[in-house]
Structures are given as C-alpha cells and as structure tokens.
C-alpha cells in the first residue's frame, strides 16, 4: 500500500469519528485491474477500503451536486477536483463550510486505453512502482513508463496541486508547463478549417449520445440538460450528424470558463471520442481574453456568467 492511501484512510477515519463530515468521497479498489471505483464512506471502520493510485480515473467533484446541500462532504481532491469544487461553490452548488477537502497532489491518471492498446484487453493485474506501471496479462508481464501511459489531459496538466484544501496529504509537485499544456490547442488552431472540421466530424461521428461525458463532468449539473428538453425540443433526436454535432458543440460552449481540464469526459466515453480539444480552446481564450482561469480564485465568477451594473455593454442593463 502506498503512503498516500494510508494517510487518506487515517484522515477519512478521523473526519468520520470526529463527525466533521457525514460522508467521505474517495476511491476503493475496482473489479478490473486498471480501474478503481468511487467509494462513499460513512463509517470510520470502512475507511480501510479507501485506495489512492493512478487508476482512480473519475473526477469525484462530479458527485458534489448529487448530495443535498445540508450534507457535509469530505472529498479527496486532486488539483482538478479542487478547482472543480471551487467553481461549483462559486456557482452556489454547495456551501464551502459544509465541505472538507482532503487535498492530494496528483501525478496523473493512467489511461487504461493506452495500456490495452499495447497489451490487449485481458489484463490480470496492474500496479504502479515508482515511475513505472507493471501490467500482467495472459502473456506475461509488461512494463510501461508512467509518462507514456498518462491520460492526455493529465500529461498536459497545469495544476497538479489542490487549491483551497483543508488539509494536503503528500508533497507538493511542480506546476505544469503552460507551453506544453496549450501546444495541442495551438497546433489544432493552425490546421486549415476543413481539416479541423473533418476531425470534428470524424470524432462526433462515433457518438452514441449516452451522455457519459456529461454525467462524468463535475460542471455538468443542470437539472434538465438542453438535449433532454422536450417541449419545445431543442435538438435533433437521432444519432445523425445534426444530433451528435449539436450535442458536442453546445456542451463545449456551456463549459466556457468553467471546464477544469480534468479529461473525465474523454475517460468516460465508451466510443473513445476526443472532445477536450474543443473546450481546451475555450479555456485558452478565457485566459487570453479575460485573464480568467477556473479555480485560480475562490470568488471570481466565470466571465460568461458574471455581470455588473456598470458593464460597458448596454445589453445587460
């Protein structure tokens, strides 16, 4: 067991014993070697179930809006989760004083798809050892450099350290390299429009509208999503381009200035659809044009959500 897991268990048990929170949201071992499962711990004895490793692929902040506001939640927060919690608190989705953030600096999530692409679908065991991931399949042992099998969003992560946490377990990590983080956005932007469109068509063409991307996203919490609205209906119902492209475009726009770049949407997608490139561009524009970055402050509203009476544009008055 790694030392972080131990520290998380101790802290979770303490929070429950001292009745600081009603539930601790973390991870427990999964049923598949390359995956962990979200866990909801309400008794201190159960804290022993908690694990923390590179196979914890979900953004736990997605569960925050699923609990009533009076619930006191303890949440294991990596960089992206802590920024999502901040954004959600700014959007009044939970009271900060009802949250206890157990911060954990994060070395990135292992992308099971990258591993299976190399070793096939039948993994029997997987473990991390320092900078390596060791996977056992029916053909034997395979070793990977961690950096080679990180999820793309994690490989270009800017802020691996939690913000605004109540406690931080583990040592802080160096911040990410902005040049590396934004390189894919600039590269994609440099492509001719028809190539960009072709890529968008190709990716959305596989969409089955299961909305796993929406449900896995901490920032998608509308009680009624625009695609679910039936009177009047706002989108084409079929999995034709008119339906799937509209979904991906509007979903991306709703994330402008709100996306925390965790990549949970892509990890959840059963059809391997690339979609972070759309919102990453919007996040880049938010930085460039408004100097805004999600999670950087605990009070600044996202530019597209904020308005003031002295706005220089007349339309908001």
């Amino acid at each position: 067991m790694n030392s972080l897991t131990l520290a998380i268990r101790q802290e979770a048990a303490r929070l429950l014993e001292e009745k600081i929170v009603d539930v601790v949201i973390g991870f427990e071992a999964g049923t598949l070697p390359l995956k962990a499962q979200p866990a909801f711990i309400t008794r201190k004895e159960e804290a022993e179930k908690l694990v923390f490793n590179g196979f914890c692929q979900n953004n736990l902040a997605a569960y925050l809006t699923r609990f009533p506001k009076e619930k006191r939640l303890g949440i294991i927060c990596r960089g992206c989760e802590s920024r999502a919690v901040r954004a959600l608190v700014i959007e009044h989705q939970h009271d900060r004083d009802k949250l206890y953030l157990i911060g954990v600096p994060c070395t990135g999530i292992i992308d099971w798809r990258k591993i299976e692409r190399r070793v096939g679908e039948n993994t029997l065991q997987a473990r991390e050892e320092g900078d390596e991931v060791i996977v056992t399949t029916r053909d034997g042992e395979h070793r990977f450099r961690r950096a080679d099998v990180l999820h793309d969003s994690c490989a270009r992560c800017l802020h691996p350290n939690p913000v605004g946490a109540d406690i931080v377990l583990g040592d802080p990590l160096p911040e990410g390299d902005p040049e590396r983080a934004w390189a894919p956005v600039l590269e994609f932007e440099a492509l001719p429009p028809e190539e960009r469109y072709a890529y968008f068509v190709q990716e959305t063409g596989r969409c089955i509208r299961c909305y796993a991307c929406r449900e896995a996203c901490p920032m998608c919490y509308c009680t009624e999503c625009f695609v679910d609205h039936t009177a009047p209906r706002w989108t084409e119902s079929m999995i034709t381009p008119g339906g799937t492209q509209a979904w991906h475009i509007v979903r991306a726009f709703h994330q402008a200035g709100r996306c925390v770049s965790c990549g949970a949407c892509e990890r959840a997608c059963p059809m391997d659809i690339k979609m972070t490139y759309l919102v990453d561009k919007l996040s880049y524009d938010m930085m460039q044009q408004y100097g805004f970055e999600v999670g950087a402050s605990d009070e600044k509203q996202p530019p597209f959500a904020a308005f003031t009476l002295d706005d220089r544009n007349r339309f908001v008055r």
Partner: peptide, 25 residues
C-alpha cells in the same frame, strides 16, 4: 447505485437492452 453516474453506456452497449423512444421529427 451511489457511484452510478446515470449515463447510458451500460444499456446502449448492452446486446439485450431494447428500449426505444418514438419521436416525430
């Protein structure tokens, strides 16, 4: 159900799930 996100992955990929919705376009 606590960890369930409420997406359609399990049912859409399921070979035996057959529910459909009729819509007038």
């Amino acid at each position: 159900q606590q960890s369930c996100l409420g997406c359609g992955v399990c049912t859409f990929l399921c070979p035996t799930c057959y529910c459909f919705d009729i819509v007038d376009e």
